[in-house]
């Protein structure tokens, strides 16, 4: 695994006025690269550590500009980004860019007035931002020095030492807990959950503020047995807040743009009523 520690981070998006990644109005910085492969992931372009070329066939007008500007004439790809730059229909785009910690801090700084008015701040998300601990640590320290409140959105599948290193500069953790069954976790995400559950409890023991996020995916964790296990676990180890996030299909287009096999990544979309009922159940579980 590539570990950036050179004052820059591999980022695939910076979203200002994010209202859903923690308290108040936030800027969310999305790190590229993840060590889980959740089948329902709605940001599949966040998984690989390296930049990627996305191609949205629906937007392609067949003008041939990409072939014309590509130094390799599309026979191979060096991720130079020329085709994306000149594609008039936005069918091609390059995802992932190394951005210096300094430049990111400047972008984060821009919305200070909004953070202060709303009790917001910055959220480092991904991908898995903890896979780039050097850059993440520098960003967190930079925000601390500037008095900007910080949140780290993580799936927790990292060593405790990695998490421990950022505790002093992190005000809030947004922590994904997907299911309690280890086997099922491994089957659907490519990794077991023992470390994840252990790290979660350690964060609580360290007295950190944690908001748990549970994806609700039919066919994965919405059967009664799993729901009961999740709620029981959260009751036993209550976080500050639980958010249940029903699966949606907004990621489908991105899978196609990455040339991925859709069948593996399509789940049923939950009925609105059922989703509300489950959200309520999780809210009340702690």
């Amino acid at each position: 695994m590539q570990r950036t520690n050179d004052g820059s981070a591999m980022i695939f998006d910076v979203q200002h006025n994010s209202f859903v990644d923690g308290p108040g109005i936030r800027t969310t910085v999305f790190f590229k690269g993840c060590n889980l492969r959740c089948q329902w992931c709605h940001n599949p372009e966040s998984q690989a550590m390296e930049p990627q070329l996305l191609f949205d066939a629906e937007k392609c007008t067949g003008c041939g500009k990409c072939r014309e500007v590509c130094p390799q004439h599309l026979k191979s790809c060096t991720l130079c980004g020329q085709c994306a730059l000149y594609c008039p229909g936005d069918a091609r785009s390059l995802c992932g860019e190394k951005i210096s910690v300094q430049a990111l801090l400047e972008q984060i700084e821009q919305d200070r007035a909004y953070y202060e008015a709303s009790g917001g701040g910055v959220t480092f998300s991904g991908g898995e931002c903890l896979l780039q601990p050097g850059a993440l640590g520098a960003l967190l320290r930079g925000c601390r020095e500037r008095g900007i409140s910080t949140a780290v959105d993580t799936a927790g599948a990292v060593s405790w030492e990695t998490l421990e290193a950022i505790l002093p500069d992190t005000d809030l953790f947004l922590y994904d807990i997907k299911c309690i069954s280890n086997g099922r976790h491994r089957q659907f995400t490519g990794a077991g959950n023992a470390v994840i559950l252990q790290n979660y409890q350690r964060l609580l023991s360290a007295g950190k503020a944690v908001w748990v996020r549970v994806p609700l995916v039919e066919g994965f964790n919405t059967d009664e047995e799993e729901l009961a296990a999740l709620c029981a676990f959260l009751r036993a180890h209550p976080p500050q807040r639980v958010e249940a996030l029903p699966y949606h299909r907004l990621g489908e287009r991105k899978y196609r743009a990455l040339g991925a096999d859709m069948a593996q990544h399509t789940f049923p979309v939950m009925e609105q009523e059922r989703a509300e009922e489950l959200k309520k159940r999780f809210r009340e579980s702690t």
Binding site: N17, F19, G24, I25, A113, Y114, A117, S118, G120
Partner: peptide, 8 residues
Amino acid sequence: KTVLMMET
């Protein structure tokens, strides 16, 4: 949050 955004 929208209210706070517009106030800011």
